[in-house]
């Protein structure tokens, strides 16, 4: 019981600290809300400019969706949410290292991997606000939000899709603990995830081997399911292959991530490299 209480105190401490930092720079939150609309507007503007009046017709033929604005707004919002979670732990560690407060985390009455995971909660809160503020108006305006149950189902799929990302985030965090400067590697991983997830296009545009490769990413399945639910108005059965794959990834990735983190952290401790950066 005491352990739970201590953990709850640590969680509250991390939550309050990170939320204070977020709220210190509210322009970032507004930017996250505005960016999906801006990027969608940019794609649509260029699309209309190069394709003329047949732009929407071509788009529908290529994607099966007749509302490109909704398609890109939803895609960008999901991209922002997943990418923030993906890089969050790694950059939080790096930021603590640069601030000189990294070592203090080892004095906390909770394992460090757990503390780093706790960083995800305040960031997830902001991302939920961003996702709701971005997607709800455009979904409601487009009239595709058939029922609140569908929306809740979509939210559950999204939450399930975040679990494997937690595993990838921990693996990236392990890299920071071991190799310190994470920017280049995180940027590389992010680019591959963005390319293969299909936030802005159906994956059928790629050769079959690329589509097959993309199946190992949780984001690929999340986007595909959400498009079916929200854009195509199709039901997704709980036994749907994509949902089952997502479930399997939600178990596998956190296990791999946790294993990598603990192994690399203990390696860094053994070599005395924990405080070198």
């Amino acid at each position: 019981m005491e352990r739970v209480r201590r953990l709850a105190r640590a969680a509250l401490g991390v939550y309050v600290k990170e939320m204070k930092i977020w709220l210190r720079y509210p322009t970032w939150i507004f930017a996250f809300i505005a960016l999906p609309y801006m990027l969608s507007g940019l794609f649509n503007g260029i699309g209309y400019s190069i394709a003329g009046p047949r732009a929407v017709e071509n788009f529908a033929r290529n994607t099966g969706v007749s509302n490109p604005f909704l398609f890109y707004t939803l895609g960008t919002a999901l991209l922002l949410a997943t990418e923030v979670l993906l890089q969050d732990v790694a950059y939080s560690i790096r930021s603590e290292q640069l601030l000189g407060t990294f070592e203090l985390h080892y004095l906390a009455p909770a394992p460090t991997w757990l503390i780093w995971i706790l960083y995800l909660f305040p960031h997830s809160t902001i991302m939920v606000v961003v996702l709701l503020a971005t997607t709800l108006p455009v979904l409601a305006f487009s009239g595709v939000l058939s029922s609140p149950i569908d929306f809740l189902y979509a939210c559950s799929v999204l939450a399930l899709g975040m679990l494997p990302l937690l595993g990838i985030a921990l693996a990236l965090a392990a890299l920071v603990v071991r190799y310190k400067e994470p920017g280049a590697v995180v940027s590389l991983v992010q680019s591959v995830v963005i390319l293969l997830s299909g936030y802005f296009y159906p994956l059928t545009v790629f050769p079959a081997w690329v589509s097959a490769l993309s199946q190992v990413l949780p984001t690929t399945h999340v986007i595909s399911i959400l498009r079916s639910l929200l854009l195509a108005g199709e039901g997704v059965s709980p036994l749907d292959r994509r949902l089952l794959t997502l479930l399997a990834l939600a178990v596998a990735y956190p296990v791999i991530g946790l294993y990598s983190y603990r192994r690399w952290e203990s390696e860094a401790r053994r070599r005395g490299e924990l405080s070198k950066y």
């Binding site: 794609f43 260029i46 699309g47 209309y48 190069i50 394709a51 047949r54 732009a55 929407v56 071509n58 788009f59 033929r61 290529n62 994607t63 490109p68 890109y72 920017g183 280049a184 590697v185 940027s187 590389l188 680019s191 591959v192 963005i194 390319l195 936030y199 802005f200 296009y201 545009v205």
Partner: peptide
Amino acid sequence: SDLITSPLWAVVILLPILLFLP
């Protein structure tokens, strides 16, 4: 990282634009 990610980003930006064309 710049050298590897630049073409990946180019594809990510290009494909959404191409979808408006036949």
